[in-house]
Design a binder for these strands. Structure first.
Length: 502
RNA sequence: GCCGCCUUAGCUCAGUUGGUUAGAGCGCUGGAUUGUGGAUCCAGAGGUCCCUGGUUCGAGCCCUGGAGGCGGUACCA
């Protein structure tokens, strides 16, 4: 090692968009995953785990002659000159798995998966470059009932997490209806819809929730200038065409009720009336599918409060073929956090590998974002108790302390021995920082008597709130008891019980 | 990618027209209390003022270039 190597000090810093998680926060997130996957299992989905890397072409990334296919993914080149990329979702690996193992799988194939995914994008609040998803998919069923089941199960999952009716909603749209609405524009002037940039229009519509109607009108027309002064070119629609499109999609204007309280049945009727599709068109079959979905959802007890037909839902542009859905938090919790889950039907994904069209539909819950949103919502979230900390006040007490900790663990309690070299004061500070409910203290005095001291840290903390003076503080006693060593377990449970009661 | 803002102690930030020794609150360490956390009081430690080059007698402050962070916007299979 050269001198300069020795001198080199890397700066300790977390890569942006990646999170360090610890303690209670991590436990909370794991609990979310456990609860969601329990629901998926209960609904008859089988667990599937695939690796973090896929070959880049399997992810749908074709490699032009650039050095790195880094558009949105983290990629690297394998020894055999093949590009591999970290998966950016759990759906593409599923498609690959199904294509590879098609013959041996039950059809339809129902599986769930949970794990981290990676996206090489600019991070933001509630938006990470590594985050967890928890997916369920049904591969091999074209029935609208499969889509309806996804919505119903998503509701069940959110409620298993403790969300209540009215705190979340699944918004539901359909690509085919969007296309039908775009055809309406043909009625305005000479511009044929095919000449419009459909992509630009769909992207604009997708921003309705964030930019509002006026912002989207600008994007559909001439373009929009944002807060920083940057200008986004628009789709170039006429004002009449843009308004007409927005009226149909948002169910407002002269022929629409425009009411948020409208039922889904009313919304379907509105679309039938305004899109007036040909009997054999894809819009017509989309509407028929919608009605049967609606029926299935009703029979599963899913109410209009839990799902809403919203034809402005677009989602990612390429791989969804029909129904698309998106879950959002309602109310203060949801502000600024975007969607907390989403999915849709992707009938062509497996066909990329096999050439055989296999219908599939799925739903994905963004665990990291949901955890971030829930956390932001409950700023005063109660923190969970740390372990009981056993403190050896002198060196000779160490062995006995380990025996105490072992006895507490045998009772199913979390316990640890303080391993640092500091004095009593620092030891108590440590216990405090670990959020221990109580400290077990063993020093020379106790050992001489065959006793042990138990200090109720929570009681002391509560008492501190009302004490402002050092003298009063010292006179108040130490919120601790000393008991014979063989009464350790019973005395500890008494203190814990009194803490729960208080 | 584009646009804007920002970077001073562990954290959040103040810092006058460019002037000697760069500050505060919180946190941290120690003491008041030789074996007792959280309140209170006292003391202390802690700085490459993001980096680089320049202007100047003199730069945390002004100028060039770079890096990093934040926000908006675009992209998001």
């Amino acid at each position: 090692m050269s001198a300069s190597d020795k001198d080199f000090r890397p700066k300790a810093r977390r890569p942006r968009g990646f999170q360090d998680r610890r303690g209670a926060g991590l436990a909370r997130e794991r609990a979310l995953v456990a609860k969601i996957s329990k629901v998926y299992e209960d609904w008859g989905f089988e667990a599937l785990e695939t690796g973090a890397f896929e070959y880049a072409d399997a992810l749908g990334k074709f490699l032009p002659d650039q050095d790195r296919p880094n558009e949105g993914v983290f990629a690297l080149e394998d020894d055999d000159d093949q590009w591999m990329a970290l998966r950016y979702d759990l759906t593409a690996p599923l498609a690959r798995f199904v294509a590879e193992n098609y013959d041996g799988l039950p059809k339809p194939y129902r599986r769930w998966a949970a794990g981290p995914v990676w996206r090489n994008e600019k991070p933001g609040p509630g938006r990470f470059r590594e985050f967890w998803q928890c997916d369920a998919d049904t591969v091999g069923s074209a029935s609208p009932a499969a889509d309806a089941e996804m919505i119903a199960m998503a509701c069940a999952a959110y409620e298993a997490l403790g969300l209540k009716r009215g705190e979340y909603r699944i918004n539901f749209g359909d690509r085919r209806i969007l296309d039908g609405a775009l055809d309406l524009i043909a009625k305005f002037g000479a511009q044929a819809p095919a000449k419009f940039n459909r992509t630009t229009i769909l992207r604009a519509i997708d921003k309705l929730d964030r930019l509002g109607r006026e912002g989207v009108r600008a994007l559909l027309g001439k373009g929009r200038k944002d807060e920083s002064g940057d200008f986004t070119p628009g789709a170039g629609l006429s004002v009449e065409a843009a308004d007409s499109l927005l009226d149909v999609l948002t169910n407002s204007g002269s022929s629409g009720a425009g009411s948020a309280s409208q039922s889904n049945a009313q919304r379907i009727d509105f679309l039938k009336l305004n899109l007036s599709p040909d009997a054999d068109s894809s819009v017509a079959s989309a509407l028929a599918d919608l009605e049967s979905m609606s029926d299935v959802l009703r029979s599963m007890g899913v109410s209009d409060q839990q799902w809403r037909l919203d034809t402005t839902i677009v989602r990612g542009l390429d791989y969804y073929t029909g129904p698309v859905f998106e879950a959002q938090l309602i109310g203060a919790n949801g502000a600024g956090f975007g969607s907390i889950g989403g999915g849709g039907r992707y009938d062509d994904l497996v066909a990329r590998f096999t050439g055989q069209k296999i219908p599939a539909t799925g739903f994905s819950i963004g665990v990291s974002r949901l955890a971030a949103a829930l956390e932001a919502g409950e700023a005063n979230a109660q923190f969970t108790d740390g372990p009981i900390v056993v403190l050896p006040f002198d060196k000779d007490s160490m062995t006995d302390c380990f025996a105490f900790a072992a006895r507490l663990r045998a009772k199913g309690l979390k316990a640890e021995v303080y391993l640092g070299g500091a004095g009593p004061k620092a030891q108590l500070k440590y216990a405090d920082k670990r959020n221990a409910p109580l400290a077990v203290i063993l020093g020379g005095d106790e050992r001489a008597q065959g006793q042990v001291t138990l200090k109720d840290l929570k009681l002391g903390a509560a008492r501190a709130k009302s004490v402002a003076d050092n003298k009063e503080w010292r006179e108040g006693g130490a919120a601790q008891i000393t008991v014979p060593q063989d009464e350790l377990e019973s005395a500890v449970s008494r203190i814990l019980a009194s803490q729960r009661g208080a």
